[in-house]
Design a binder for these strands. Sequence first.
DNA 1: GCAATGACTGGTA
DNA 2: TTACCAGCCATTG
Length: 108
Amino acid sequence: MAATPSPFARRVLDAVDAIPSGHVLSYGDVAEYIGAGSARGVGAVMARFGAEVPWHRVVMTDGRPAPGHELRQLALLRAEGVPLRAPGDRVQMARARWDGGVVALRSS
DNA sequence: GCAATGACTGGTA
DNA sequence: TTACCAGCCATTG
């Protein structure tokens, strides 16, 4: 079993686990969703305890997957039905971004 | 308790 | 579009 995640880590894991299939969230959005820490902090937690949650639903603010897991993450996102851009190296944040915590501005 | 590391972000070239 | 730099934060040794 993995080491006991800190209160902050637990919060991050809970937020990532709350992301519905077919949607993604950026590291900075997760930090904002939990109202604590920052993208760096979320990334640090994901790197240690990300295996306990659907980490593949967390991408860069640019819609780019995490370094070292690009293929793995893209494959999982594609399987979830996430709108991808190009043959499959980037995610359409404008369409895949989850609006469950941050009421994004729906320009429509 | 301090220093180093890293799955981050925004700005500039 | 890609590449590089400085700032920010949590975890580990």
